[in-house]
């Protein structure tokens, strides 16, 4: 009996891997279907969530729309497949989605053992701290002896302990089973500090009874690079996904926006010309037209615009650019040159 089960499992795995690495044809498939299938979040403030009309909005969502715009010149030709954290990778492996943009942290094990490749990082997240303004604290290094509300059994809990130990601070952690309980306990005054990923801190803060009395500290104590994910074995497709993000970054760097992209077509700046495809044919080796980047920017906007609109100052979350600022402004968002 055991042998049969093993054989069946091996067969299943072989079929799965076979299906996973089979095609280098994603772009053709997408063009044939007439729409992009994008693995999305089932609802995460600022990154992917439906609005009052049921349209998907958010930073991750706009990344997918930009890819669709580059391929079809139409940002609406994308079908969002909401995926839970459990089934997201299987959906990529099985080809149910063409690309996964769903606040997925890039780690070595995910990159090497799941038959997946990570593309560009569209958001650098990391663990942060939420405190009451009345504590008059400006930095996490002043948290010596503070009690911290944290969710049990998460990497967040481990990061917290590491950070306090590394900085020789005394830690009193108060743990809870669920995230809701944790924030409720913080609000009730059980602890001085609440910690989770920074993007989550901003969203939770808004739900507190007196949001204005709380602030997020500037320190980010862990690395959570959130990126796009595609299947192994189709490098052309991976290039498209990656360079869509880089094009939007380059656009921000060069000051090309959704509003001025048409006048920028006449720009004499060689960098702008190469970006928008008026000089050189950089889109074609990827199977796109040379104005792929122009289309993304025209329909969706540059990275900065998208950031401000979805999670930044144009949104209720008001997340500061921080690590997600351009490299020229002290952040980590850096695009390889287009030439």
């Amino acid at each position: 009996m055991k042998k049969i089960i093993l054989a069946a499992a091996a067969l299943g795995a072989a079929v799965a891997i076979g299906a996973g690495a089979a095609s280098a044809q994603t772009l053709n498939n997408v063009k044939q279907k007439g729409f992009l299938q994008c693995g999305a979040n089932t609802g995460l403030a600022g990154f992917g969530q439906p609005d009052a009309q049921g349209n998907w909005t958010g930073l991750d969502v706009d990344y997918c729309r930009a890819i669709a715009a580059a391929i079809f010149n139409d940002p609406t030709k994308v079908k969002f497949v909401p995926l839970s954290a459990k089934d997201r990778f299987t959906a990529v492996q099985s080809g149910e989605v063409d690309v996964l943009v769903r606040n997925t942290t890039w780690t070595i094990s995910r990159d090497t053992s799941l038959g997946l490749n990570f593309g560009a990082i569209n958001y650098y997240d990391g663990q942060g701290f939420l405190v009451r303004k009345s504590l008059k604290i400006a930095s996490a290094l002043e948290l010596n002896g503070a009690s911290v509300c944290v969710q049990q059994g998460t990497t967040t809990e481990l990061n917290l302990a590491d950070y306090f130990r590394a900085n020789k601070l005394e830690l009193k952690s108060v743990t809870f089973a669920t995230s809701d309980e944790t924030i409720k306990a913080y609000e009730a005054g059980r602890c001085d500090v609440f910690t989770t990923d920074a993007s989550g801190l901003y969203a939770e803060r808004l739900r507190l009874a007196k949001a204005d009395e709380h602030m997020v500290l500037p320190e980010i104590i862990s690395k959570e690079p959130l990126g796009s994910t595609v299947r192994h074995g189709d490098d052309q497709w991976r290039d498209i996904v990656q360079w869509t993000h880089y094009a939007m970054l380059t656009a921000e760097e060069l000051g090309v926006t959704k509003a001025n992209v048409d006048t920028m077509l006449k720009s004499e700046n060689p960098d702008v010309k190469r970006l928008l495809g008026t000089e050189g044919k950089f889109g074609e080796p990827m199977g796109l037209t040379s104005d792929g980047a122009y289309r993304s920017i025209k329909h969706v906007g540059n990275y900065g615009e998208v950031f401000e609109r979805t999670v930044g100052n144009g949104s209720p979350l008001k997340i500061s650019r921080g690590q997600n600022a351009l490299w020229t402004k002290g952040g980590l968002q850096y695009a390889p040159p287009i030439r």
């Binding site: 089932t42 609802g43 995460l44 403030a45 600022g46 969530q49 439906p50 609005d51 901003y202 969203a203 808004l206 739900r207 507190l208 009874a209 949001a211 949104s315 209720p316 979350l317």
Partner: peptide, 16 residues
């Protein structure tokens, strides 16, 4: 129920 879950986390309606 999921539509309620998805809507309630919308920061546009982030209130206690």
């Amino acid at each position: 129920l999921k539509t309620i879950e998805a809507a309630r986390i919308d920061p546009r309606w982030g209130a206690p």
